[in-house]
């Protein structure tokens, strides 16, 4: 892990890796969307509405995995002071927030025909909304601190504290009586029939690879911007 903390080495690997991640991700997504829209059967109870699952579940996973990434990168920054870890955490925040928002919106659209409501203050929905607010707070904080790298530590502490919400989101449907159903996929297998499940595997891995590609692109952008700023500063001082 420490080997990759060197920005020059990171840039070399990230630049080579990005197109592979992106195009494989897009290919899997196209396959998953085609399978999910045209090949998989409707659900016995929900009918065609079930197809929103192919977007909703990957979005929920990436929203949560995104904060998992912010939390671990922030922790690495706090412990080993790798500047690249701070860059990674900042790069994850906006895509993570967008996927969390997609999860909430698609869930709401699914909830209307299935449950008969757009929104309820149920444990899962509320904890997911809290996560979106955490993301927005993180982004606002990061934007406000842009100039001073001292304060990267305060931002990293925010990133670590946000981890507290992850077990709550995960447990909200099994520990609390909730409107949202318990997880369909778990250690014990799947409660989703295989005909409906396979496109979900494609969109899950496709979105995940695309997410990784976006993070790498954003990290490279942040590094390039830092370099430009440093060079401009040097030129101004000369």
């Amino acid at each position: 892990m420490h080997r990759f903390a060197n920005p020059a080495r990171f840039l070399k690997i990230a630049t080579a890796l990005t197109p592979w991640l992106m195009w494989t991700g897009i290919a899997l997504l196209v396959g998953g969307c085609y399978g999910g829209l045209f090949l998989s059967p409707p659900d016995y109870l929900q009918g065609e509405t079930v197809r929103i699952l192919y977007i909703h579940v990957p979005a929920a996973w990436l929203g949560m995995a995104g904060w998992g990434g912010i939390g671990s990168a922030s922790l690495m920054y706090l412990i080993w002071r790798h500047p690249l870890a701070a860059v990674a955490a900042k790069a994850i925040a906006a895509p993570g927030a967008i996927f969390t928002a997609i999860c909430l919106v698609t869930g709401s659209i699914w909830g209307r025909p299935t449950w008969g409501t757009w929104w309820e203050w149920d444990g899962r929905m509320t904890s997911m909304l809290v996560m979106l607010l955490l993301y927005m707070g993180y982004l606002a904080f990061a934007g406000a601190l842009r100039e001073k790298s001292d304060n990267d530590r305060a931002l990293a502490i925010f990133g670590v504290i946000g981890i507290v919400n992850l077990p709550i989101i995960h447990g909200s449907v099994t520990w609390w009586k909730s409107l949202h159903q318990p997880p369909s996929l778990g250690m014990k297998g799947s409660a989703i029939a295989s005909e409906i499940l396979w496109p979900l595997g494609l969109t899950m891995s496709g979105f995940t690879l695309l997410f990784a590609a976006i993070i790498l692109i954003r990290m490279r952008t942040i590094l390039a911007m830092t370099r430009t700023e440093a060079r401009l500063l040097r030129m101004a001082l000369d």
Partner: peptide, 16 residues
Amino acid sequence: NLLAKHDEKYMPPELS
């Protein structure tokens, strides 16, 4: 007001 609660099972109509 009534809300329907969906469970975690998803399956095609023939199977059900």
